[in-house]
């Protein structure tokens, strides 16, 4: 019985790994190569957008927006030299 339980656990683990491998190594790359998707991914790259960013500091485009605001701020507050 113990041997059977171990076998079942190992089999389910192997099955899940196989499914994940197929999805990540075959299906998703194939989808990424589709012209429409490729165009969308390229557009995101050009804009500096990572849709999976969790916080604003992880967003490349935010650097540009903040730099623009910073330039405006420096123009408004001239430094004494």
């Amino acid at each position: 019985m113990r041997w059977r339980a171990r076998f079942l656990r190992a089999a389910s683990f192997s099955l899940v790994i196989a499914v994940l491998s197929i999805v990540w190594l075959v299906l998703l790359p194939a989808y990424a190569r589709q012209p429409k998707m490729r165009q969308h991914l390229q557009w995101l790259d050009e804009k500096g957008i990572d849709p999976s960013a969790m916080y604003y500091t992880e967003l490349e485009i935010m650097d540009e927006i903040l730099a623009k605001q910073r330039r405006a701020e420096l123009r408004l507050v001239p430094h004494e030299s």
Binding site: W43, L44, K47, I49, D50, P51, S52, A53, M54, Y55, Y56, E58, L59, I61, M62
Partner: peptide, 11 residues
């Protein structure tokens, strides 16, 4: 909700 998704939708 998500920050990255906001940017993607805004763009």
């Amino acid at each position: 909700d998500s920050t990255g998704a906001v940017a993607a939708a805004g763009a």
